[in-house]
């Protein structure tokens, strides 16, 4: 049981990240590498604020806001300065390394002595009864709120335009809207969510470490691809739900690899499990198509 709990904890927290990556990768069709910097950016600002005595709850909106700023920067570099998409992400990711170091002060900020949203909640009588489930419950609450807000947003006029930019940008131009601005908006939202994931992760692990962003994009993309391809045919399920489940499945793959194989083989096993999941979902799709025909 406790194994399932820690996989859910990690999977749900990285689910927020998956929501962010979903916006850029699936909706905007923009491979955004900024996340390798904006994830630790959220963590850095959280660690700095918490050590300064700011309420842990306040760090959530603040880290979202600072992630939005990072996303806007990437967007401006790409749209206004006409730098290629991949490159503008790399530029921001590189710049954020130093910015994160400045914000946090040092490369490693422990938060063992400070209060976090999780420890504050365990003081609350309502949550205290949940014992070991507390982290999972809070992560679930945060990720569900993010998901619902994102779903609601995607149904607004602005949300529809955002989806149109990725699918059919001619349409957007024909509606007399500037697709550049919409792209910037999408990147801002995405990186806001990613920084929020960094904020929660930092409080859960109780440490900020500058290298914690390395490989974030891989986890994010893997979660999005697993989620969307596995539940492609499940029309009752929203893509936003699918990517969160994708994130949990990704963490399950990692946990299986950690549990059962030697440390050297772990990355390979994770890759193989990841491949198997993709093959299965790919086959399901062709089969379903065949049935329709």
């Amino acid at each position: 049981m406790s194994f399932a709990i820690s996989i859910l904890e990690q999977g749900l927290i990285y689910g927020i990240l998956a929501l962010g990556v979903y916006i850029t990768y699936k909706i905007l069709d923009f491979p955004d590498l900024t996340v390798d910097g904006s994830f630790p950016l959220g963590a850095a600002i959280t660690a700095m604020l918490i050590t300064k005595g700011v309420s842990p709850y306040l760090t959530i909106p603040i880290s979202f806001a600072i992630g939005v700023v990072a996303g806007i920067c990437t967007g401006v570099i790409h749209v206004k300065l006409k730098v290629r998409d991949l490159l503008s992400g790399i530029i921001m990711m590189t710049a954020l390394w130093t910015i994160n170091l400045y914000i946090a002060g040092t490369a490693n900020v422990p938060l063992f002595a400070q209060k976090t949203i999780f420890s504050l909640a365990s003081e609350n009588t309502l949550f205290a009864k949940m014992g070991t489930y507390i982290t999972v419950v809070i992560s679930l609450v945060v990720v569900v709120i993010c998901k619902i807000l994102l779903d609601l947003y995607l149904k607004t006029k602005s949300g529809f335009l955002l989806r149109a930019v990725g699918d059919n940008d001619v349409l957007v131009t024909s509606l007399a809207k500037d697709q550049g601005n919409i792209k910037i908006l999408g990147l801002a939202l995405s990186n806001g969510l990613v920084a929020l994931a960094g904020c929660i992760f930092c409080q859960e692990e109780r440490v900020f470490e500058i290298s914690m962003g390395t490989g974030t994009i891989v986890i994010g993309l893997a979660s999005v691809i697993i989620g969307t391809s596995l539940f492609k045919k499940a029309s009752f399920m929203k893509a936003t739900t699918a990517v969160i489940i994708g994130s949990i499945i990704y963490k399950l793959c990692v946990a299986v690899a950690i549990r059962n194989f030697s440390p050297q083989a772990m990355k390979l096993i994770t890759a193989v499990l990841f491949l198997i999941v993709l093959i299965i979902s790919g086959r399901k799709k062709t089969k379903a198509n065949g049935m329709k025909a």
Partner: peptide
């Protein structure tokens, strides 16, 4: 050298 892995 992967923080998220270290936590898991």
């Amino acid at each position: 050298a992967d923080m998220s892995l270290s936590g898991q």
